Amino acid sequence: MSTTAVRYLTMLRMVPRSPRTITTSELAQRLDDHGFKVTIRSIQRDLEKLSADFPLMVDEDSRPYQWSFDRNATIDIIPALDLPAALTFELARAYLSPMLPPRALSHLKPHFDEAHRTLLREKNPLGQWPNRVRVINRGLGGERPAIDADVLETVTEALLREYKCKLVYQARNWPEPEEIVVHPFGLIFRDPNVYLIGTIEGREGVRQLVLHRASTGELLEEVSDRPDDFDLDLYIRSGAMGILKSAEPVYLKLRCDKPALNHLIEAPLGFDQITTEIDDTTFEIAVTVGDTQDLRWWLTAQAVHCDILEPRWLKEEITATLERGLARMKG
């Protein structure tokens, strides 16, 4: 392949999808970083030539010109989708749709549509995939809070580029919204919310910021202060996302009914879980778990199917909660 053709492909990959744009001067700088020495005027001529075959758009009212791909266009500068790749996009559509706001999904829509067309063209049974798969989230299925699309885009770019970001944020216990500077560590999707994990400049401790509570976002081109030893998986396994009641883990022993809680055998509550068959109707588990609010909600909900053997203090706490609930129901 000629050097010019490689430059064309490299440049096309740099052009974002509308409404985002890139200027010819920015393209010149990025091409230079990739080893292509080319003038802004040459880039302008190249893009005008390529726009005859690719869905490129230009804002000629700006100086320098701003370029983008048509928002709804399928960009055929990658190999045609084969069936496994098309099925992967169909799976992504099924699982991402419940989690992301419409504007974020719109960037993927042309690829989703092309995947579906590929499955239909091949007259393959996989083409019926959208009609035969559903994603059901556990719980009452309430409507997900709306996330400002600009906030989501700012946060994701800050994470990718390891920059700080500025948010106008309203925490549940704050009297009014505040402007905060965040050092982002990661994003966690925990239905129905999306959490930004990081620190707030000038305040101590790792925070969980619920993205729908942020009204505006701004990327700060300043390197974020992210600890080298921070691990998102370890953070989750610590129980932090279950609203920690204390930093000390809980050694939990339960006597459970079959078959109501058989899923605990197939999906253990922790990596050290030990399961003991008692008889045809019961089994016991012993496991170390985080001391979280989620643990208490789960034990309260499963009270008719399990006995808390250890620890005693947790059994007494759950018993008191159930007694207050019963008294309220009878009141």
Rank of each mutant, 00 (worst) to 15 (best):
M329Q: 08
L50W: 07
K164L: 02
T282R: 15
D228K: 01
G139W: 11
F283L: 09
L261K: 12
S215W: 02
R134I: 10
A327E: 10
T216E: 07
N137Q: 13
A80T: 05
P98C: 08
S62K: 10
Q208S: 07
R324G: 09
K123S: 08
T21I: 10
T281E: 13
T23K: 04
R328P: 00
D231L: 01
F189V: 00
G127V: 04
G35I: 11
R134F: 08
A171R: 09
P311C: 13
G141C: 06
L31C: 09
L56V: 02
M99C: 12
N137E: 15
D280L: 05
E60P: 06
I197K: 03
L314H: 11
T118N: 03
L322A: 03
D61T: 14
G35Q: 13
D291T: 13
R138F: 15
K330I: 09
D225S: 05
F230S: 03
T300R: 15
E90Q: 11
D32C: 10
T23L: 00
S51D: 04
T3A: 13
L211C: 07
R134H: 11
T10N: 14
R312W: 10
P249I: 10
R207M: 00
S51N: 02
E316I: 13
M57E: 14
V223A: 11
E317M: 10
L269D: 00
T24Q: 05
Q302T: 14
L299C: 10
D233H: 05
H263K: 09
L87T: 06
R207Y: 03
V206S: 05
T24A: 06
E248M: 10
D61Y: 11
T4V: 14
T292E: 09
R63D: 05
L27F: 09
L87Q: 10
F271P: 10
R17P: 01
I285L: 13
Q208W: 05
G242R: 02
P16E: 01
G205S: 01
S2R: 13
Y65D: 06
L100R: 11
P19K: 01
E317H: 13
I243E: 15
K164A: 02
E204R: 09
L234Y: 00
P19V: 08
L31N: 07
R71G: 02
T21E: 11
T10G: 12
V182N: 06
P130C: 04
D33N: 14
E317P: 08
K49V: 12
